[in-house]
Structure formats: structure tokens, C-alpha cells
């Protein structure tokens, strides 16, 4: 090795040694921090009020967590709505969610409730909007195309009377039907029955009576197959079996779809006609006007 090579070798070795020593001297954390800088999900809660206690009881009893207060982590910030008034949220939780929805289902059709319940239920004061609080027609189903979460808007305007709750529970089953539709699919055969006869946006100019002769339980069901499915469930919760049979007798396609939807639910563990009768009885016994 000549002297130039030796010098370069020694210089290189020296540089490598110093680099290793310096890099090794950098202070290292013994472990990675196990916390994010800010816990965005933490909410500072005060003393639980009566409604908080009721929602806790419902969660322990049925496994459904009711939300009536919101921050941007509960519903994403591209959704616009207003929380319900506290008194309305309290009435809704007790008389709609507990007394009319969860309790009767758990007594009459526990398997259906256990298998098909959402684990979250959102109580919202206004309708749900998607561009701003004042934009367009409000939607409820927008919250309900999710398997784990059911949400109902317009609670501030709900009449907490027997008649008001009896009608509203039909809408709740309608929204829940969208979840089951998303989850299992209403089926290829279902969509073929009324294919080509849906009103689309012209449903608004049809009456419910006209819709029934055209093969839909009500005009909105004629909008599209998914609403056809959901309004069929809604109708079976709203009308007695005898009335349903009279309606479906008006149109063979409606009769076919009725059989499909009825069986769809029966396979999941609930007889919608029996549920209709149960709900009539339950709502009649509510301590409301």
C-alpha cells in the first residue's frame, strides 16, 4: 500500500468511526410515545342527567347507544343539522326508542333485535342536509345507509302524542329497512317486478291511491326500488294484515313484492303483521294523549 492509499484509508476509517460515534450518541426515546398529542374523542362530561342515565340503561339492556348531543366527531362536518331540544330528546328516547321500538322487539322478536339492531341511534332536531343547514330537501336516510347506526331527524317537530308516535314508528321501521336492504340486498328478483314502471321524481305528482293501483304502497315507494322496499315495510307496520291484503289485491306486482318483503323479514326472525298488532297495543298504553 503506498502512502496516498494509506492516508485515504486512514481518513475514511476515521470518518466512519466518528460518524458511528456521533450517530450513536443521538438521544433516542426508549419507546415510541403511545399517545396522540390530543385526544380528539374525549368529551368533558358533567354530572349525568336523567337522559344520560336512561341512555346508559338502554345501552346496558339492549346494546344500543343513543346519542342526543353532538360534536364534529359524531357526525362528519359535511353534514348539517341541529341537535334536538333536550325535552324532545328525552321524550323521544323514552317513548319512541325504549317503549315503542326496543322493548316490544325484545319481548316479541328477540332474535331479530339481537341480529339486526344498530349499535348507535342518533336523535337529531332538524332534517339532515348535505350542503348547508338550509340547502335542499332534508333527508333522513342519509344517516341510515350504515349498518351500525340509525338516525332520525326532525325530532323537534314530532308530536309526542299516541297518534304521532304510532305514525313515527312506521318511519323508524322504514329507515331501518334501508339498513337491512344495504346489509342483505332486497334481491335481483325484487327489482325485476316493477322494473320500468317507477315514477322516479314524478312520484310527487302521484297520489297514494294511484300508486297502489300502479303497484306501490304509496307514491314515494314509486320513486325507486329502495324506497319501494322501505315503504313496503313501513306499510306493514302501519296497516293491519287485513288492510294490507286489501291493498295488495289492487295490483299483482304489489302482491308479489309484498310476499317477498314479508318473507325477507320472516327469515330474519320477525313477523311484520304481528309486530303491527303489538305496536297498536303498546302505543295505546303509552301515558300520552
Amino acid at each position: 500500500m503506498n502512502s496516498i492509499m494509506k492516508t485515504r484509508y486512514l481518513t475514511g476509517l476515521l470518518v466512519a468511526c466518528i460518524a458511528v460515534a456521533l450517530i450513536a450518541s443521538c438521544k433516542k426515546d426508549s419507546k415510541l410515545p403511545d399517545q396522540t398529542p390530543i385526544d380528539y374523542t374525549a368529551i368533558k362530561t358533567g354530572v349525568p342527567n336523567a337522559l344520560d342515565k336512561l341512555t346508559d340503561t338502554l345501552f346496558k339492556t339492549y346494546g344500543v347507544r343513543v346519542f342526543y348531543e353532538f360534536n364534529p366527531r359524531v357526525i362528519d362536518p359535511t353534514t348539517f343539522y341541529v341537535p334536538a331540544q333536550f325535552d324532545k330528546a328525552q321524550l323521544y328516547t323514552k317513548y319512541v326508542i325504549e317503549k315503542t321500538w326496543l322493548e316490544p322487539l325484545s319481548k316479541s322478536f328477540p332474535k331479530f333485535l339481537n341480529d339486526q339492531k344498530p349499535i348507535e341511534f342518533l336523535i337529531v332536531g332538524t332534517g339532515i342536509h348535505f350542503n348547508s343547514i338550509n340547502s335542499g330537501t332534508a333527508a333522513g336516510a342519509g344517516l341510515n345507509a350504515q349498518y351500525y347506526r340509525l338516525g332520525m331527524g326532525g325530532v323537534d317537530n314530532l308530536a309526542f302524542t299516541k297518534a304521532g308516535i304510532r305514525e313515527h314508528i312506521c318511519i323508524l321501521y322504514h329507515e331501518h329497512a334501508h339498513q337491512l336492504d344495504q346489509k342483505y340486498g332486497r334481491g335481483y328478483a325484487y327489482d325485476r317486478v316493477s322494473q320500468g314502471t317507477y315514477y322516479q321524481l314524478n312520484y310527487a305528482s302521484r297520489t297514494d291511491a294511484q300508486a297502489q293501483t300502479d303497484g306501490f304502497f304509496r307514491a314515494y315507494g314509486g320513486y325507486a326500488p329502495e324506497e319501494d322496499f322501505a315503504t313496503s315495510v313501513e306499510a306493514m307496520i302501519r296497516y293491519s294484515k287485513a288492510d294490507i291484503l286489501k291493498i295488495v289485491a289492487k295490483n299483482a306486482k304489489l302482491a308479489t313484492k309484498y310476499q317477498m318483503v314479508y318473507k325477507f323479514y320472516l327469515d330474519k326472525g320477525i313477523d311484520l303483521h304481528q309486530m303491527h298488532d303489538v305496536l297498536d297495543d303498546v302505543v295505546n298504553r303509552l301515558p300520552l294523549q
Binding site: K44, E69, P83, G125
Partner: peptide
């Protein structure tokens, strides 16, 4: 009171 981006978030959480 919850958290926003580096600051607290005050929500008027019921109507």
C-alpha cells in the same frame, strides 16, 4: 367541551 385542532371546542350540544 371537547377538542378541535389544537384548541378546545365548545358545543352547544342540545337545541
Amino acid at each position: 367541551i371537547s377538542a378541535s385542532t389544537g384548541m378546545p371546542l365548545l358545543s352547544f350540544s342540545t337545541g
